[in-house]
């Protein structure tokens, strides 16, 4: 039985295959969320937008499931770079944002009583650290040698997905999570942080789009539905750039709307 998708170099078949690790991981995620929400339910502020948060959580879990389970999981792991890149957008960008948004503010309060964890979080999720960690994880996890070495095994493929997800959580943490409190990261700073990441040209994108030949051997040598490996790779590069820019643009819009709302509230309170 297979527990995670990986590059098998076998002809593609539409026969359904269970990926046990994906289901177990998602069940654990749901259980952890229920526990956190139950703990936080005593806080009236956290109860206010429960439905909206639950919708964000459901969307995040759905994105993880759809991108990691059959058929997109195996297709992205061993056949099409464009599907692999769509998985990255889901696992490494969209799902972490949705899952962080789904947590009520009180769910983070537990961290305030753990000074060591808080100290680590303060450093790791500071905007500058988060920027570097996310971009290094993103660059290394798309590096041809790394992808070709890790994707042919279940453990390697799992590690890449985990790195994406962890990198995404760290990236969004300073923008979304209320703990640790950062007076020095105002809404304008958050907008600049997101916009910079949207416009940044990263090496993997440049390699995928401008390389004369396919850079990933697993996709170049994959049986059909692989085929036009270079075209698929260039499409993957476009998905990476345009898709991530759109997700970050949505983030900018949300931050901006929250900023405007808080300014209006402050003004209303003042009058």
């Amino acid at each position: 039985m297979q527990w995670w998708c990986f590059a098998q170099q076998e002809p593609w078949t539409w026969t359904w295959r269970p990926l046990v690790g994906v289901w177990v991981g998602l069940v654990l995620l749901v259980l952890a969320y229920r526990r956190l929400v139950r703990r936080a339910s005593a806080d009236p502020e956290s109860r206010k937008t429960t439905r909206w948060r639950r919708a964000a959580f459901a969307a995040g879990v759905f994105l993880l499931w759809a991108s990691l389970d059959w058929p997109l999981g195996p297709l992205g792991a061993g056949y099409l770079a464009s599907v692999h890149m769509s998985q990255f957008l889901a696992v490494g960008l969209a799902a972490p944002a949705l899952l962080l948004l789904s947590l009520p503010p009180a769910a983070f309060d537990g961290l305030l009583t753990r000074p060591r964890t808080l100290a680590v979080l303060e450093e790791v999720t500071s905007p500058l650290s988060a920027f570097f960690i996310f971009n290094i994880v993103m660059t290394v996890s798309h590096w041809p040698g790394v992808v070709d070495a890790l994707m042919p095994t279940q453990l390697g493929s799992f590690m890449l997905d985990l790195a994406w997800f962890a990198g995404g959580l760290i990236f969004w943490w300073p923008v979304i999570a209320p703990v640790p409190r950062r007076a020095a990261f105002p809404p304008l700073g958050k907008i600049a942080y997101l916009a910079l990441n949207a416009f940044l040209i990263r090496p993997p994108f440049a390699m995928m789009v401008f390389s004369q030949h396919p850079i990933y051997s697993i996709y170049e040598l994959a049986p059909p539905p692989g085929g036009d490996a270079l075209g698929d790779q260039q499409f993957a590069g476009a998905i990476m750039k345009i898709g991530s820019a759109w997700i970050l643009f949505v983030g900018v819009v949300v931050v901006f709307k929250q900023w405007v709302r808080s300014e209006s509230d402050a003004e209303a309170r003042g009058t």
């Binding site: 002809p11 040598l221 994959a222 049986p223 059909p224």
Partner: peptide, 14 residues
Amino acid sequence: PDVCPVHMANLGAV
């Protein structure tokens, strides 16, 4: 199902 189309596609692309 595997070797021939991949080999020929890569040769054809170049």
